[in-house]
């Protein structure tokens, strides 16, 4: 890959937190290294609690690595940046603002007309038209998550860091949101880093899947998903890819019964 293409460059990065006992830190990330190219869709999968979210929070600038080198868009991460919007696992929608005020939150520097137009566009995209004036407490969990995704997209960030954004959604909404996200990504060519514990989700979405180990987490493999979109979930290539990741995470997809045979 051409060096200028690389927008995320993580090298030999370690992360530990102070534990309950002094002198016994909890090691979360070890020797993490990977690169992401401009416009790439990369999923990070791993067992729950392994440190996927921690890694994403380091990239987002919310926490600082213990040691290592984390370059995003050519510079060390100094903090959160409006060009790189984070979609939070726990709901980050502001409960004191309406749906449209939330979606327009990142657009305060734009002229009012443009703001209104973008808000309307993204509210429609996530299927919340009719709920523009509703407050988050009046929405279901899935609808709130869609508000947050619309808010991130409306801000026109160059990169999206998504931390299990569809985890709280029901099955059908999740499928629809995945398809929408791929469509948006293809249209707007943002770089997306997407953390999930759902292997199927990763293979449906990503160009490349980083597979992490248990804590202290390292990246044990990178699986390239070289399949046309929209993904055919019955295609040989899709199933091979999925089963390979299951195997990497220590499970035989068919024998353990985690996969319903089609």
């Amino acid at each position: 890959m051409a060096a200028t293409d690389v927008v995320v460059d993580v090298r030999d990065t370690w992360m530990s937190f102070a534990g309950n006992r002094p002198g016994e830190p909890i090691h979360v990330l070890e020797r993490i290294g990977f690169q992401v190219r401009h416009g790439e869709f990369v999923c990070i999968v791993g067992p729950s609690g392994c440190g996927k979210s921690t890694l994403l929070n380091v990239l987002g600038g919310f926490i600082e690595e213990t040691r290592g080198s984390v370059l995003v868009e050519g510079a060390p991460v100094k903090g959160p940046d409006p060009g790189r919007i984070f979609v939070f696992q726990e709901n980050g929608v502001f409960p004191w603002l309406t749906v449209e005020q939330n979606v327009g939150f990142g657009l305060w520097q734009r002229p009012a007309a443009e703001r209104a137009e973008r808000v309307a566009h993204y509210v429609r995209m996530v299927g919340l038209n009719g709920f523009e004036r509703a407050y988050p407490r009046e929405l279901s969990g899935g609808m709130r998550q869609r508000v947050e995704i619309a808010r991130a997209l409306a801000a026109e960030a160059r990169m999206l860091f998504m931390d299990e954004p569809f985890g709280a959604l029901d099955f059908l909404t999740r499928l629809k949101m995945r398809a929408d996200l791929v469509r948006i990504w293809q249209a707007e060519r943002k770089t997306i880093l997407f953390v999930t514990h759902d292997i199927e989700e990763a293979v449906q979405l990503a160009d490349r899947v980083l597979v992490m180990t248990r804590r202290p987490a390292t990246i044990q493999a990178e699986v390239t998903v070289d399949l046309p979109r929209p993904r055919d979930l019955d295609a040989r290539g899709y199933l091979d890819c999925r089963d390979r990741i299951f195997a990497l995470m220590g499970m035989d997809a068919h024998q353990s019964g985690v996969v319903v045979s089609r």
């Binding site: 919310f62 959160p80 502001f94 004191w96 939150f105 990142g106």
Partner: peptide, 25 residues
Amino acid sequence: LVYLRAAQNFGVRGLPLFRRVIFPA
């Protein structure tokens, strides 16, 4: 914390951070 992080992510800081996020929260 998630409200604060979201606001910072959108580049809101200083007095607007107080007015738009900390105070309403």
